[in-house]
Nucleic acid binder design. Structure first.
Lengths: 235, 235
DNA sequence: ATCACCATTTATCATATTAATACAGCGGCG
DNA sequence: CGCCGCTGTATTAATATGATAAATGGTGAT
């Protein structure tokens, strides 16, 4: 697959399982089992257990102290923008609250990224934005392909910004969008209006019109926020 | 100190040293030493070495494969927003480029956070913004205290937003600002104009005037960006 | 060119020792 | 009696050590 994978198979499994459980709040009010018990539970040696624990520590999820055992860190210490943590957060059952916060965050990032992309003016990167928008409108696409094109579009904007911190939000956007779009698409009927909005953003960026790009981007996100709010009220 | 600390002393030291070296590009074109050599270098057992390596792996900095050794991951996989990675990035000698990117990122986040803070309207949180602004103007402050008040001000805005992703950027802002403010303060003479700008933001938020808060916040950041750009041109 | 084997390095396991520290128990003292 | 400080002990993570397994690039035989 990717040229760079994670740690070993066993370690990865422990990290994944414990990470999900921690984020799900399973150990919110009590310490994790002691290393020996975790090792037994996963039929692994204490070494791998400890290595897994260290990985979770590095993600800010837990902290260990002799005699006290290992317990979950306060939520403000969690590395929310770590791709793994993010995925676990979403897999614990996506709350509309969290999705709303995602969208508010994107509302901050994306228009600014579009603006930066114009200032940076990397033709190849800007072209990729247009291509993705193109792909969204093209007929004969599966639901899945359309979703991917939509994601690619938003990621392309971040990449074109050339700002490393925005680019870092790529995983956030990718993961969150996959959920978000499914929700919003379920509400709105056809997505033609949506793809028009995307194209408007792409055009504004290509034309170098920062003001128009920002406002078009903002419109799109406001609509998404409104749909989420609507779903929230509907319960 | 803090109720939750990091891993053990030895492990932490290895993580710190290797992390800095990796971020500094020391292993950009060759693999890291093999586990045995790292262990020897740090006079530690292979266990702790491996645990340290796993922590760095969790931060996206490196990847290990049997027979190939351990090498630095492509930069786009690094968890830029991880507090440790961030600190290492800054400690490798602050480049103005990076600082400019920081500021552009903050330009996206902060005005939106201010806007969200108004919508959320948490009186206690908003009061803390005002207090920090107050502290900035009060006379008889050491340089260091004033800097801390400045940082507290910006962090308070993020906290007041109630958005967990913005709050997550707290470490980013805190770390980056500490560098950024030192630079900008060195350029401008006295900071009275600056503290007025801060107070304007606090007042707008307290008054619930989102539009004014956003534009005031934007003004402040634009000024910071201009100063950085100026420093950049000066070489 | 293909395939079996080898060497290297991480991955895992197993066990022992050390260090940190919460907690209980003891003794002193008001 | 009740409170305070000391001390010992048990618990648990931290570190050390050394061995075996698995993965895989390279090498040489066919």
């Amino acid at each position: 697959m990717t040229p760079f994978e994670n740690g070993g198979k066993v370690t990865a499994r422990i990290v994944e399982t414990l990470g999900r459980a921690i984020v799900a709040g399973e150990y919110a009010d009590r310490p994790l089992p002691i290393e020996a018990d975790i090792s037994e539970q996963f039929k692994a040696s204490r070494s791998v257990t400890r290595e897994a624990i260290k990985m979770l520590t590095a993600k800010g999820l837990i902290a260990s102290r002799p005699r006290l055992g290992t317990s979950v860190a306060p939520e403000r210490d969690w590395n929310f923008l770590d791709p793994d943590v993010l995925r676990w957060l979403l897999n614990r059952g996506l709350s509309l609250d969290l999705l709303a916060e995602f969208t508010a965050f994107r509302s901050a990032i994306e228009p600014q990224a579009a603006s930066l992309a114009i200032r940076r003016n990397d033709p190849a990167a800007i072209a990729r934005i247009g291509e993705a928008a193109e792909r969204m409108t093209k007929g004969g696409m599966s639901q899945e392909d359309a979703l991917q094109a939509d994601i690619d579009f938003h990621v392309a904007i971040l990449l074109a910004s050339g700002n490393r911190f925005m680019i870092q939000c790529r995983d956030l956007v990718e993961t969150a969008l996959r959920f978000s779009i499914r929700l919003t698409n379920r509400q709105k009927g056809v997505a033609t209006a949506d793809s028009d909005a995307h194209r408007a953003i792409a055009n504004a960026i290509a034309a170098g019109d920062a003001e128009r790009a920002v406002s078009a981007s903002r419109d799109l996100l406001n609509e998404a926020a409104a749909l989420i709010e609507q779903a929230r009220r509907a319960g």
